[in-house]
Lab assay of single mutants.
Amino acid sequence: MTEYKLVVVGAGGVGKSALTIQLIQNHFVDEYDPTIEDSYRKQVVIDGETCLLDILDTAGQEEYSAMRDQYMRTGEGFLCVFAINNTKSFEDIHHYREQIKRVKDSEDVPMVLVGNKCDLPSRTVDTKQAQDLARSYGIPFIETSAKTRQGVDDAFYTLVREIRKHKEKMSKDGKKKKKKSKTKCVIM
């Protein structure tokens, strides 16, 4: 069974824990209790493949930012979460993405942009803004509501699919490099 290491990042209060708990335990946590770091595991079937999701729910508070490099190193894919009623959390996505790329030393890291709290009427981040940002990053965008469960499975499952595509691409690139290195030079 394939294991996928997913990391949920975003500013404090955007609903990272609520999304994760909704996926794992099928219930909505409405009281806000700032996370330092929590880890969850769940076995699911995605596109006919049974897999184990190892999900790291991270601290959004700035005082825990020193811990970010460590979990970013171990993560295979990242859910970059903002709240649709919090423009600052949307603007912060850029910083999370840049930090992930720096730590992973790669421009090509599996990510999904997630606009959470889409059940709320007080939207300050337009869907088109988020779609445009995701398009500019070359990553999928999904709106979710941890409260109603809308888009929750889709967000995590899409990230797994992005990781699969990335692994497939990397193995193809690896095979191309191996083929090239088999060419021999004969000096007579």
Rank of each mutant, 00 (worst) to 15 (best):
T2W: 04
Y4M: 11
Y4T: 14
Y4V: 10
Y4G: 04
K5L: 03
K5Q: 14
K5G: 13
L6Y: 05
V7D: 03
V8P: 02
V8K: 14
V9R: 01
V9S: 08
G12K: 00
V14R: 11
V14P: 02
K16R: 01
S17P: 12
A18V: 11
L19H: 03
L19R: 02
I21D: 03
Q22H: 12
Q25A: 06
N26P: 00
H27Q: 11
H27T: 07
F28K: 00
D30F: 07
D33Y: 15
P34L: 03
P34W: 00
T35W: 00
I36N: 00
E37H: 02
E37L: 00
S39C: 12
Y40P: 00
Y40G: 02
R41M: 06
V44W: 13
V45K: 04
V45D: 03
D47W: 02
D47R: 04
D47N: 05
D47V: 02
E49Q: 10
E49D: 08
E49V: 07
T50G: 06
T50H: 03
C51W: 09
D54K: 00
D54T: 01
I55F: 02
I55Q: 00
L56I: 01
D57Q: 00
A59P: 05
Q61T: 11
Q61V: 14
E62C: 13
E62D: 12
E63T: 08
E63R: 00
Y64N: 15
Y64F: 15
S65H: 10
A66R: 03
M67K: 09
M67S: 02
R68W: 13
R68P: 04
R68K: 06
D69R: 03
D69M: 06
D69Y: 02
Q70M: 01
Q70C: 01
Q70P: 01
Y71G: 14
Y71E: 15
Y71N: 09
M72G: 08
M72E: 02
M72W: 05
M72Q: 02
R73F: 11
G75M: 13
G75D: 01
G75Q: 12
E76A: 05
E76K: 03
F78P: 02
C80P: 01
V81E: 14
V81Q: 12
V81Y: 05
V81M: 12
F82L: 08
N86M: 02
N86I: 03
N86A: 07
K88C: 09
F90L: 06
F90N: 07
H95G: 11
E98P: 02
E98H: 07
I100R: 04
R102G: 05
R102A: 04
V103P: 01
E107C: 13
V109Q: 07
V112G: 02
V112R: 03
V112P: 04
V114S: 02
G115A: 12
G115W: 06
G115T: 11
G115H: 05
N116E: 14
N116G: 11
N116M: 15
N116R: 03
C118S: 11
C118A: 13
C118N: 12
D119P: 01
S122W: 10
S122C: 11
S122Y: 09
R123Y: 09
T124M: 09
T124S: 12
V125F: 09
V125H: 11
Q129W: 12
Q129G: 14
A130K: 09
Q131W: 11
Q131D: 11
Q131L: 09
D132T: 07
D132S: 09
R135F: 12
R135G: 13
R135Q: 11
I139N: 07
F141Y: 14
I142H: 13
S145Y: 06
A146L: 01
Q150R: 08
D153A: 08
D154L: 09
D154S: 10
A155G: 13
A155K: 04
Y157M: 07
L159A: 08
L159P: 15
V160T: 08
V160D: 03
E162A: 09
E162N: 13
R164C: 10
R164V: 06
R164N: 08
H166T: 12
K167C: 12
K169W: 07
K176E: 13
K177N: 10
K178L: 05
K178V: 11
K180W: 02
K182L: 06
K182G: 11
K184N: 07
V186C: 13
M188W: 06
